[in-house]
């Protein structure tokens, strides 16, 4: 019980910490932050349930008014902005990512975790994000989807990195990858 709570809290803090790492800028000028990789890692390392709870806890603190999102953003305003769908989708993304890593045991962990991050952290997340954007900006789903496609290459890179990081962690400290525990 205590261990689950501290793991969830520390990974919520990890997502916040990753928001402080300077943003990388892709060749064509799209900034990518490490924060959404933190969401993927919550799923691949902690597993579905704990991963989703860590992300929920992180979002609760953002809503309470802490500037924990990348770029020092936070507060209730981000939940009234056009990107609210992505925030709502984060816990679900972590859950789906974690579920896939927990259930799909065949093959190399790096591959499994990368594919799980692509499915959870991109396919599922963008479904929420695009729907949110369609509502907030009063556009159709297809139009909103077109607006965010520019961010997909960066997220694919993050998903692959999340897979590699999870596999490295499993190789060096097998007990740490709790989704496979």
């Amino acid at each position: 019980m205590e261990r689950n709570i501290t793991l969830i809290a520390l990974f919520a803090a990890l997502i916040a910490g990753l928001g402080l790492i300077p943003k990388l800028t892709l060749a064509f000028g799209v900034p990518i932050s490490a924060q959404s990789m933190g969401v993927m890692l919550c799923g691949t390392i902690l597993g579905a349930r704990r991963g989703a709870l860590a992300v929920l806890l992180f979002l609760a603190l953002v809503a309470l008014g802490l500037p924990l999102l990348a770029g020092g953003r936070g507060g209730l305003g981000v939940f009234a902005g056009p990107t609210v769908g992505f925030l709502v989708g984060w816990p679900v993304a972590a859950f789906v990512t974690g579920l896939i890593v927990e259930r799909w045991r065949a093959g190399a962990l790096a591959l499994t975790a990368s594919v799980a991050s692509v499915i959870g952290g991109i396919a599922v997340l963008y479904a929420f994000g695009v729907a949110g954007m369609a509502i907030m900006l009063d556009k159709t789903l297809v139009e909103s989807a077109l607006l965010v496609t520019i961010f997909i290459p960066g997220d694919v890179i993050k998903a692959v990195l999340a897979g590699l990081i999870t596999a490295t962690l499993a190789r060096t400290r097998p007990a740490s990858v709790l989704s496979r525990g």
Partner: peptide, 12 residues
């Protein structure tokens, strides 16, 4: 990021 995650687990 990997050592950061490892340190977070240790702290937990």
């Amino acid at each position: 990021v990997m050592p950061m995650a490892a340190l977070a687990i240790d702290d937990a």
